[in-house]
Nucleic acid binder design. Structure first.
Length: 791
DNA sequence: TTTCCCTCGTTTTTT
DNA sequence: ACGAGGGAAA
């Protein structure tokens, strides 16, 4: 394999017309290729260069919508098709399981089943796990180690903090967890933490806590996510021979989303890449939005320095967005200083300009968005091609409320993950103890779930015994039941539990694991617990449990299932329905939609004040990249908006439009103004609307009304259901201006009424001029009678 | 052991 | 405003 048949001369493929310096034979050879390689067709010259520069380090700077995934998958197909590598010679790492799955899928489509068997295509963590299982004993583990999720991690930290006599009030487990995660992200083991930082935590106990935490993990035969990479580094550093086998095994290395790598991942890659040095990293420094969780933009900025002789390919031709959208995004991101610099361009038409709309408050903003969506819907715009991207999840509530009122179908992307739901984690804990009786953390989670009278006191006894005898909790429980240490009632409950676990463990040997799971959930009383629960979401939880058991069937055995779960914490998404998507900007990375709404462009919210406070200019630049990501999600329409008043932590505060709005290139932006114009004089977008400075407060609703009707401020562009006729008295949420006047109402219970916002309904109760109305669509609301008409 | 109340925090999220 | 989690009372 030293001389592959089609050894590429240099980067210039046949498409590169810079023939100078390319040998005749090479060109002749290239001329053959288009036939031989259908998969290369349709690639532009830069993409092709990124695919065909197979030898040596390559950095592909792939702007948004420039065909990044295509390059990555084609490159793999190319390596295999030209016999440069077999599927198992290639290491391809991604960040998310979703990305890994998609890549597998697309490679399969390109080269057929040959791509199915890429054993080393996966997330950093999945590959790290695979490697660690093979050499577990060399890093002090057994090969069936468990991978702890965040909740287990936290519980462990709490124990460690307690053990070390640190005040848990002052140094909460979360903070320790944060610190340790940070160290692990930077590739630092307990001994390598800089003394200063270790000192800073808990009066110098930082290092001791870290060490103790690792020791606890080791005794539990468990690792956390950080360890999956960190322990690989340790393994390789201490065993050069093993490192070398991996270095020579991976002839070609590919990395997706390189801008998101942290230091540990970078070190991990660098060690592996030192073998063949054929490492291709694909990323976009302008889409680095995970700095807060350890991603180092520096990794991508430093690539040429770290891999001397690297070829850098820029993909700047955008196939996604229209001209104005691209211009807006480019103009914005150009304000960042720490970037390698790319200029996206498109051959597409200029299209619609990016719109900017102001609203009086966040509720009106939500109303405007919903109306705009309904208008689009009226023009046959598919809802699945519309997305609303928010900066923080708290923004979603009002928008959802509005959608619910209108009966507009939507889905929230990136909500609580399936495997993170309490009922699923509980069920998992039962399975974990069944599969591995030494899994103390899982045991602790469910000893008293459902409630069976085994509380703290009992647990303390178990712990004491377990620690003294150096046995797992379950075994400790079993032994203590044989003594008179426990109160009779506790003893019998505990004995029943331990016996159940023994029984379940036995049945795993003989029965299908999903059936065992079903049995466990029933016999333990867990299902019953939710059946008795009267809260609203109990039914959903039971549904989830069913789905959980069903999903187990896809795996060959219990161990396989548990491994999958610990690495793949994502929701099973019901695809396909015709719905608007609602998500955070972070969750939107990698997705695209025809129309994208971007609400909440207000200073303090976006750019987020906290990001600014904590990371200064770097924070601002990351926020700006986030804005850039948001804009570049749109294919045809991007609609920005801001509200001048927003409720923050329950308090109404006035806000000013985001500085990012003023950074957009004017030529690509349309300001959608209310009929009577929204601000005279001030800057282009009505920055700092004079009459309501920061002094605006809750009692000011009178002023608010005056301002709105007087200036037409933020009146919805399309009229429609939210506002009265323009110029007339504006309606604000009935609740907000609700002031009981005491004057008797013209309405009576049972009467049919109509409300401009909520539609038709029936009066359920009367209190002065405040009415309780059961609306046909919106449910029960308190409204003022002045907003109602007899129906 | 359980239940109720009070305090605290509240960007973004993967594995 | 609001929910989660911890501590004190039943």
């Amino acid at each position: 394999m030293q001389n592959p048949p089609h050894a590429a001369s240099r980067a210039d493929g046949p498409a590169g017309s810079q023939g100078a310096g390319t040998s005749i034979s090479a060109r002749a050879m290239g001329a053959l290729r288009p036939d031989a390689a259908a998969y290369l067709e349709g690639l532009n010259p830069e993409q092709r260069r990124a695919v065909e520069t197979t030898e040596g380090p390559v950095l592909v700077l792939a702007g948004a919508g420039t065909g990044k995934t295509r390059v990555l998958t084609t490159r793999i197909a190319h390596l295999i098709a030209t016999n440069r590598a077999r599927p198992y010679d290639i290491l391809a790492v991604t960040f998310t399981n979703k990305a890994a799955r998609e890549m597998k899928h697309r490679i399969g489509a390109l080269i057929g089943p040959a791509g199915e068997g890429m054993p080393w295509l996966g997330t950093f963590h999945a590959i790290g796990t695979k490697i660690l299982r093979r050499h577990a004993e060399l890093v002090g583990l057994k090969s069936d180690f468990t991978i702890l999720g965040t909740d287990d991690q936290l519980r462990l930290m709490k124990q460690v903090i307690l053990d070390q006599n640190v005040d848990e009030k002052r140094w909460p487990a979360r903070a320790l967890s944060h610190a340790i995660d940070g160290w692990k992200n930077r590739g630092l083991g307990p001994e390598q933490v800089p003394a200063g930082e270790a000192q800073a935590f808990a009066f110098g106990k930082g290092a001791a806590l870290y060490t103790a935490y690792q020791a606890r993990l080791a005794t539990l035969n468990a690792v956390d996510f950080g360890d999956l990479l960190l322990l690989c580094l340790k393994l390789w550093r201490e065993n050069p021979d093993i490192l070398q086998t991996y270095q020579s095994r991976f002839r070609y290395i590919l990395v997706d989303e390189y801008q998101d790598t942290n230091v540990a991942q970078y070190l991990w890659l660098r060690l592996l890449a030192q073998g063949h040095r054929n490492v291709a990293c694909v990323g976009d420094d302008d889409q680095s939005i995970y700095g807060w969780r350890g991603a180092e933009v520096d990794n991508i900025l430093r690539f040429e320095h770290d891999f001397p002789g690297a070829v850098v390919v820029r993909l700047e031709r955008n196939y996604r967005s229209t001209g104005h959208i691209l211009a807006a995004a480019s103009g914005l991101i150009a304000r960042n200083e720490g970037r390698l610099g790319k200029t996206l361009r498109t051959d597409d038409e200029p299209g619609e300009r990016v719109t900017v709309t102001g609203a009086w408050d966040s509720e009106e903003e939500a109303r405007q968005i919903a109306e705009a969506i309904e208008r689009l819907q009226g023009k046959k715009h598919p809802l699945s091609e519309i997305a609303v991207l928010v900066r923080i999840s708290a923004q979603m509530r009002e928008i959802e409320d509005r959608f619910v009122q209108l009966g507009l179908p939507y889905r929230v992307i990136g909500g609580p993950r399936f495997y993170e739901r309490a009922e699923i984690r509980d069920a998992l804990a039962y399975l974990r103890v069944t599969a591995n009786p030494a899994d103390d953390l899982a045991f602790e989670r469910i000893v008293n779930t459902p409630k069976r009278g085994l509380g703290d006191a009992t647990l303390q006894q178990l712990h004491a015994y377990a620690r003294a005898e150096r046995v797992p909790l379950l075994l400790a429980a079993r032994r203590l039941c044989e003594t008179d240490e426990l109160k009779p009632r506790v003893r019998s409950t505990l004995r029943a539990l331990t016996e159940s676990f023994s029984r379940w463990a036995r049945s795993v040997e003989t029965q299908p694991h999903s059936e065992v799971a079903q049995t466990i959930l029933e016999e333990s009383g867990y299902t019953e617990m939710w059946q008795k629960d009267r809260s609203a979401d109990a039914a959903g939880r039971l549904e989830n449990l069913k789905e959980f058991v069903r999903s187990m069937e896809e795996f060959p055995d219990l161990a396989g299932f548990l491994e999958h779960v610990s690495l793949v914490m994502e929701a099973s998404e019901a695809e396909g329905a015709e719905r608007v998507s609602l998500m955070t900007l972070h969750a939107a990375k990698g997705l695209e939609f025809d129309t994208v709404f971007l609400p909440g462009w207000e200073d303090g919210l976006f750019p987020n004040q906290r990001a600014l406070d904590e990371s200064g200019r770097a924070g601002l630049e990351e926020e700006r990249r986030l804005a850039h990501v948001g804009l570049t999600r749109a294919r045809k329409r991007a609609k920005l908006s801001f509200a001048v008043n927003r409720r923050i932590h329950g308090l109404w505060s006035s806000t000013i439009p985001s500085r990012f709005i003023d950074e957009l290139p004017e030529a690509s932006v349309d300001v959608v103004e209310a009929p009577a114009h929204f601000s005279a004089g001030a800057s282009r977008f009505g920055r700092n609307p004079a009459p309501f400075g920061s002094s605006y407060g809750t009692p000011g609703w009178q002023r608010a009304q005056a301002a709105i009707s007087g200036r037409g401020f933020g009146a919805s562009a399309g009229g429609g259901r939210s506002g009265g006729p323009s110029g007339g008295p504006r309606q604000i949420e009935g609740e907000l201006v609700a002031k009981s006047t005491g004057s008797p109402s013209a309405f009576q219970g049972g009467q049919r009424v109509f409300h401009t916002k909520f539609g038709p309904g029936t009066v359920a109760g009367v209190d002065g001029n405040k009415l309780t109305v059961d609306f046909d669509k919106a449910g029960r609301k308190m409204v003022l009678d002045s907003f109602l008409q007899p129906g």
